[in-house]
Write a protein that binds this DNA or RNA. Sequence first.
DNA 1: ACCGGAAGTGTCAGTGACTGACAATCATTG
DNA 2: CAATGATTGTCAGTCACTGACACTTCCGGT
Lengths: 202, 202
Amino acid sequence: MAAGGSLREVSRRAVQSRIARTAESLFADKGFEETTVDEIAAAVGMSQRSFFRYFSSKDDVVFDSVERLRVTLAERLASRPIDECAWESLRRTFDPVAERFADPELRAHDKAVQQIIDRSPRLLAAYLCHLERLQRTLTEAILERATRRTGREPDPVVVRAMVGGACACLHAATLHATGDPEVFDVSLDRAMSALRPASMPT
Amino acid sequence: MAAGGSLREVSRRAVQSRIARTAESLFADKGFEETTVDEIAAAVGMSQRSFFRYFSSKDDVVFDSVERLRVTLAERLASRPIDECAWESLRRTFDPVAERFADPELRAHDKAVQQIIDRSPRLLAAYLCHLERLQRTLTEAILERATRRTGREPDPVVVRAMVGGACACLHAATLHATGDPEVFDVSLDRAMSALRPASMPT
DNA sequence: ACCGGAAGTGTCAGTGACTGACAATCATTG
DNA sequence: CAATGATTGTCAGTCACTGACACTTCCGGT
């Protein structure tokens, strides 16, 4: 069952990324709002209806890669040693973001996506929503880990705020270092060591 | 000129808040997505076209009060003493949020709005966008103040991250204390003292 | 080779948010 | 009263998105 489904999943993903690539190049050319779904579908060679069978909204095309990154970060946090302090774990969790810059192709792609997002208020809103989801994911992981480690549940408000603070550092570093991995790493380290909580949970 | 415009502004604002009240009660009844702009316009007694002359989008109706709160907070931050540490200033900047809970009518209103937002993913995205705007506003104010005080510009990444951290505390406290001013104050204090940066700019 | 269903696709019609253009109305001022 | 400017309604149109239905293709069983 799982294997059969998997094969189909692969081809579905292939179509999705073909659509995403096409759409992104159109967005980069004409802008997001100025590109209609009809145009994307035509460029890919399918009907508008089929486009919506692969992406539930026009916005989702842009966040295809962002969503995958979220999953990567969640896995990274899960793989951190349980006795590491939470702030340090969060800092390490963000490493894959910098690692993406290593591949020049990925870097160019990410930069283009970032520009598309920045130019559209609607996309910016959606992007923040994804960051919020990331934040929720990480918060739950930290909460669960702290509970497993200390035996009792830590203050959820503080943990949520702390993860929010870490994500704010990530966001600030991303905004400041558009594309340069060196600058990103340095900025993130500076921000995160400045914001390091005095009393560290876990 | 300013006075003449002001009079017209007042009446415009009156119509806006009449629309907002009507719309919010419809949203509370049927949900945001399920309420059409046509229905709102009809309930207020105007054409759909005129609705869009007062609010640039359906979303904006909901954020009427949120936007006003943003202006209030910006003013509050500006009125803080220049030699106060930034983190403390930010904490005091958030006081009006708690103060809103004092008035039972406002509290009920805010709670209703919060529920409407929470039930709609689209509104949640827009809400985060408003928080981001608040964050940008506060960041600029802190940067400007620090520059005025120390004579040289502080690290923008760190300041942005710090404001982001403070806003994360605000957000966490808001989520946790839905409507109870006591709980809100205590939660915010706990979160903000846990996240207080070791090295404080300004 | 034939048949059956499952999965993917195109077409079409419809809804709802939003915009531009234009004409009618209404209040204000000279 | 007339000219002017702001406010409004009407109408037509665009675009994202959805549901329904018919059609093709591909595949395993007979």
